[in-house]
Design a protein around this nucleic acid. Structure first.
Length: 255
DNA sequence: ATGGCCTTGGTACAAGGA
C-alpha cells in the first residue's frame, strides 16, 4: 500500500491538482499540510466523490492539515494531546492497521525569532507524543512537512544555508530525536539520486535550477522498516501551472 | 542580466512562508 504526504500551500487553490494526483496514484492515505481552510470550507464532498474518506483540521489563512484515506480512518486525533497549541498542525488516524501521523512542523522563520522558540518547543512535544504512539502502535508512520533539512546533502547550498533556519544543529538534533524514538527516514533506506529535494523556493527560478531542500519526510517505525519497498519524491506536480512549492513524497509498503 | 514568488484578507499592501 502507498502512503503519501504533500504540503499543498492552500487546498483551495490546489484541490484540482490533489484530485488528479489521487486518481493517478491511488494511495491508501494522503496527508495534506497547509490547507489554509477553516473546517466549514473543507472540500470533503469532492474527496468523497473521488473515493476518499477525509479527516480535517484547519484554520483561517495559515496551517491546516488533513488525512485522506480509501478506507475510513479510526482513532483520529487532532493536534498533540496535552500541548496547548492554537495552530492546526497535526492529524493522526489508523488505517489498514498502520498508525499514520501527519504533521506540519512550524517553520521557525529565523533563528532569533519567537517562532523559532515555538518550533523547538513544538518539536519537543511532538517527540514525547510520538514516543508514546510508537509504543501503542508499533506499525507507525510519521509523515509531513518537517521544515528541517536533516543533513547537508539535503540542501542545495549547504554553505549558504549553514546555521539558517531549517538547517540549524538544534533542528537537526530534533530530527534525530524523532529518529531515536524508533523511526527510520524511509527516503534514505534506498539509493537515491543526488540533489533530491522536496521543496523549491518560488523565487529565483529555483525549481528550474533544481535549487531546493529536502524538508518533507516519511519516517517509518522499526516494525515497518522491512516492509518499505520504495520511497519517492514526485517532482512532476511541481511542473504544473500554479504548483505548490512542495512536492509530494510517498512510500510503498508491502504488508 | 546576481534578481527573479505565491497566498491570504480585503481592496492596499502587509505578513508569512522556507
Amino acid at each position: 500500500m502507498k502512503l503519501a504526504t504533500w504540503n499543498v500551500n492552500s487546498l483551495g487553490v490546489r484541490l484540482p491538482q490533489v484530485l488528479a494526483w489521487l486518481a493517478l496514484h491511488q494511495p491508501e492515505a494522503l496527508c495534506l499540510q497547509e490547507t489554509k481552510l477553516t473546517d466549514d470550507k473543507f472540500p470533503h464532498a469532492e474527496f468523497s466523490a473521488a473515493g476518499y474518506a477525509a479527516q480535517w483540521f484547519g484554520q483561517k489563512t495559515y496551517n491546516g492539515v488533513a488525512l485522506l484515506t480509501r478506507a475510513p480512518a479510526s482513532d483520529v486525533l487532532k493536534n498533540i494531546p496535552g500541548l496547548d497549541d492554537p495552530q492546526a498542525r497535526v492529524i493522526a488516524g489508523t488505517v489498514q492497521g498502520v498508525r499514520v501521523i501527519g504533521a506540519y512542523v512550524p517553520n521557525g522563520q529565523s533563528v532569533d525569532s519567537d517562532k523559532f522558540v515555538y518550533k523547538l518547543r513544538w518539536l519537543d512535544a511532538l517527540r514525547a507524543w510520538v514516543a508514546q504512539q510508537v509504543t501503542l502502535h508499533p506499525r507507525l508512520v510519521l509523515v509531513g512537512d518537517f521544515n528541517i533539512a536533516p543533513e547537508d546533502r539535503d540542501v542545495f547550498d549547504p554553505v549558504a544555508w549553514a546555521g539558517q533556519v531549517l538547517c540549524t544543529p538544534q533542528e537537526r538534533a530534533h530530527f534525530q530525536g524523532l529518529i531515536d524514538t524508533g523511526l527510520h527516514d524511509a527516503f534514505r533506506l534506498f539509493e537515491q539520486p543526488a540533489k533530491s529535494w522536496s521543496w523549491w523556493d518560488y523565487r529565483m527560478l529555483a525549481f528550474r535550477k533544481n535549487q531546493g531542500l529536502r524538508i518533507d519526510h516519511i519516517l517509518v517505525s522499526d516494525a515497518l522498516r522491512a516492509s518499505v519497498a520504495s520511497c519517492v519524491i514526485d517532482k512532476l506536480p511541481r511542473k504544473n501551472e500554479r504548483p505548490s512549492d512542495h512536492a509530494p513524497v510517498w512510500v510503498e509498503l508491502t504488508l
